[in-house]
Design a binder for these strands. Sequence first.
DNA 1: CTGAAAGCGCTTACAG
DNA 2: CTGAAAGCGCTTACAG
Lengths: 341, 341
Amino acid sequence: MRVTIADVARTAGVSKSTVSRVLNAKGEVDGRTAARVRDVIGRLGYVPSSRAVGLARGRSRTVGMLAPSLAWPWVAELVQGAVDAVEAAGYGLLLFTCSRGRESMTRLTAQVSANAFDGLLVVEPESETGAVAAMHRSGLPVVLIDDRARHPGFPSVATTNTLGGEQAAHRLLGLGRRRPLVVTGPRRFDCVRERLEGFVGALEGHGVGHDPRRTVEGGFGERSGEEAVTRLLAEGADFDAVFAHNDLSAMGALRALRAAGRRVPDDVAVIGFDDIPLAAYTDPPLTTVRQPLRAMGGAAAALLLARTGGGPPDDLPDDGRVVLPTELVDRASAPGPATAP
Amino acid sequence: MRVTIADVARTAGVSKSTVSRVLNAKGEVDGRTAARVRDVIGRLGYVPSSRAVGLARGRSRTVGMLAPSLAWPWVAELVQGAVDAVEAAGYGLLLFTCSRGRESMTRLTAQVSANAFDGLLVVEPESETGAVAAMHRSGLPVVLIDDRARHPGFPSVATTNTLGGEQAAHRLLGLGRRRPLVVTGPRRFDCVRERLEGFVGALEGHGVGHDPRRTVEGGFGERSGEEAVTRLLAEGADFDAVFAHNDLSAMGALRALRAAGRRVPDDVAVIGFDDIPLAAYTDPPLTTVRQPLRAMGGAAAALLLARTGGGPPDDLPDDGRVVLPTELVDRASAPGPATAP
DNA sequence: CTGAAAGCGCTTACAG
DNA sequence: CTGAAAGCGCTTACAG
């Protein structure tokens, strides 16, 4: 039923070796022979079985991607960027998410041992660093997205988190704000530390001290931002701006400020981080530090493909790092000179 | 380097056939022999090569999923639901998106011909129906998510779009609204027609006629909702509610109403469709008709797995349809009795 | 330039 | 209950 290389060979009157050669443009083949084979391939609609090719070659032209839940908009963007790049290279992307906890990791590990893919893209490994390192050690090419410092040894893609923090600070300073509230993500993330450092550093560079009591650790969810602002407001804290470490918590902050009757940006300016699609649709639209998520996904895929032999080689060392720049997106929650009313 | 079934066989002093039998719990194997083999497998850390198993069995324990861009929150939810179910069954999910247009389809078709996966999940095929039907005809199990009417022949998963429209109408009627503006999605979608029919039908059932001029076709984006409301407002149209066919356009509508100084829900009540995570974070929080997206993804995966032999069989006919119920989520943009101020 | 043969790592009748 | 052998559909030295 399925047409195989043997059918093509028989019909064209050549050996399977020859068919394989024209298929893979490998070795010398007589022009006319090749044309005839190609013709038969076309007529029979022959497509090599990926399973058989994979077994014979020892590679599947497939990469795996392990990511947190797609319910996070930034994860979805990253995955979309990767899937585009992988697809363009003629590879397939096997998607795994951590949403089922330990069992998800068990499944992934099994697939790795089964050699189901040629390389693995990992987004923000939280507790799975050990497992990922083990896979890497066993010879699987791995590329990380973000959080490099904790995982020397494999290439990674990150964004300028420190610069991003600085960008946020500069905007707030420009607006005359001197007492910002910072709602961070979980401290264990390097990106969180970097954003905070950049932010505080820039403030201090301008002679503005940052009271640590105005830094609240959040969990990257809307809730964090909402609760942090609500609580500090209740405690009578004095702040004239919010720098949230992602857009979701910034949205929560907006909500809490609104509930408390504080005007944004007049009473409190708000800046987020990420620039998820909906950031343009909050009220007021959210000024935010944009992470080039699609591009990061694409860059990570390119690095991985280079290491699995599926893409053009790059000149990055094995523990090299690609850093894509953040950019302040000017909207009404912390308007710049051009946007100011 | 990689340990194979031959290594296990040699070490355990049995044949590969026997190892295969204990691996797959197929055929009778002496208890002690089996124990010994299992022990060796454990000690050697042997895991069968998925490529070899796939070639020998003719199936890969992998399914494909073709979806629109993950930038749509509802797509991300659907994919997450599917990936969880697929993973739980020990299968892999190869993700394809249509974001690269024709080339995306070419790549997918190639993978299908190459027999790269055992079944395909398709989300809202727009222009690709021909290609999908061809794959199905060639023997590939296919399960659709939504929009069944146009594609008889394969099983599908949908939600109660008509009922959803009715639910929205009943809420607005309950609030005393008689002149709703409807911002639909593209008319070519069956779900759009059904939502509209349900909505208008329910109004008429209550003796409320619907002026077709108050129905505006949108594109499911924030823009649609914003533009529709802005335009009708400019034209001096008279409406006291908005039923948007998805949450994104509802968010656009909220934005336009705010810009025009109309109060929500007092002047204009707003209801969306989907219940994406951010619906709870608009201002005011969005009342919406919830689609059980995760569950739909999971149900579609279950149907597909049953048809690839990877899950428990279901009793659904080959062109059967699973319909999961929508549910009105009560929030402040169109508050019910309990939520009313 | 081309073919026969071995090999990739499994599964599955077929014998015993 | 167990093993030898063929087969899944390719690729790749090795000869010629």
